[in-house]
Amino acid sequence: MIPALGLAVGVLVGLLLQPTVPVWLQPYLPIAVIAALDAVFGAVRAILDGIFSDKVFVVSFLSNVVVAAFIVFLGDKLGVGSQLSTGVVVVLGVRIFSNVASIRRHLFDA
């Protein structure tokens, strides 16, 4: 409940403050957001599986974000930035889908 509250508050603060993304962060933020979403869905699934751990969630969240950003950074340096970004988004998207499917089975038996 508290993390959901945090998410809502974050959205609200973002709407109120109208932030602009600094230039150095612009290539990484979208991928980082996707990675964080993957971590969040993974955490919900872990809760339902009964193996959730706060520590694991925090670490996986941060590592997801950092690794995603690092992959994008590396891709930019290697000249394959857009392809690698697409690849990361696809992989994270697949993971999110499978996590959501698992959550759905747990919650709705379907």
């Binding site: 998410l7 508050v9 974050g10 959205v11 603060v13 973002g14 980082a32 964080a36 969630f57 941060l62």
Partner: peptide, 8 residues
């Protein structure tokens, strides 16, 4: 973290 995610 969730707050940061929403903001981001």
């Amino acid at each position: 973290l969730a707050l940061a995610l929403g903001f981001a």
